[in-house]
Amino acid sequence: MMADKVTSLQVAQRAGVSQSAVSRVFTPGASVSKKTAEKVRQAADDLGYRPNVLARAMVSGKSRIIGLVVAYLENYFYPEALEKLSNALQSQGYHVLVFMASQTAGNVDNVVGEILDYQVDGIVMASVAMSSDVAVRCEQAGVPVVLFNRYEDREGVTSVTSDNFAGGRKVAEYLLAGDHRRIGYIAGWEGASTQRDREAGFVAGLTAAGRSLDARAVGNFKLEQARDAARGMFADPDNRPDAVFVANDHMAFAVMDVIRFELGLRIPQDVSVVGYDDVPPASWLAYNLTTVRQRANLMVDETVKALLTRIGNFDTTRARKITIDGPLIVRGSTRGPAGGPQQG
Rank of each mutant, 00 (worst) to 15 (best):
Q10A: 15
V11C: 06
V17H: 03
S18R: 00
S20G: 10
S20T: 15
V22R: 00
R24P: 08
V25P: 04
F26Y: 15
P28I: 00
P28R: 00
V32N: 01
T36G: 05
Q42T: 14
D46A: 14
Y49E: 02
A57V: 02
I65C: 07
V69P: 04
E74G: 09
P79H: 03
E80Q: 13
N87I: 00
N87P: 00
A88G: 03
L89I: 00
Q92A: 11
H95K: 03
Q103A: 12
V112T: 03
D121F: 02
I123L: 13
M130L: 15
V145A: 02
T161I: 06
A166S: 15
A166Y: 03
A172T: 04
W189M: 12
A192G: 08
R198D: 07
R198T: 08
V203C: 12
G205C: 09
G210C: 06
R211C: 07
L213N: 08
A215I: 09
R216A: 13
A217D: 10
V218C: 13
A226M: 03
G232S: 13
G232P: 01
F245Y: 14
F245S: 05
A247C: 13
H250Y: 14
M256K: 05
M256C: 09
D257M: 03
R260S: 05
I267S: 01
V274W: 04
Y276Q: 07
V279W: 00
A282R: 11
A286L: 13
Y287G: 02
T291L: 03
T291V: 03
Q294H: 10
A306Q: 11
L308H: 04
G312V: 01
K321D: 12
T323Q: 14
G326P: 05
P327Q: 08
I329C: 10
V330A: 08
G332N: 12
G336A: 15
Q343S: 14
Q343W: 11
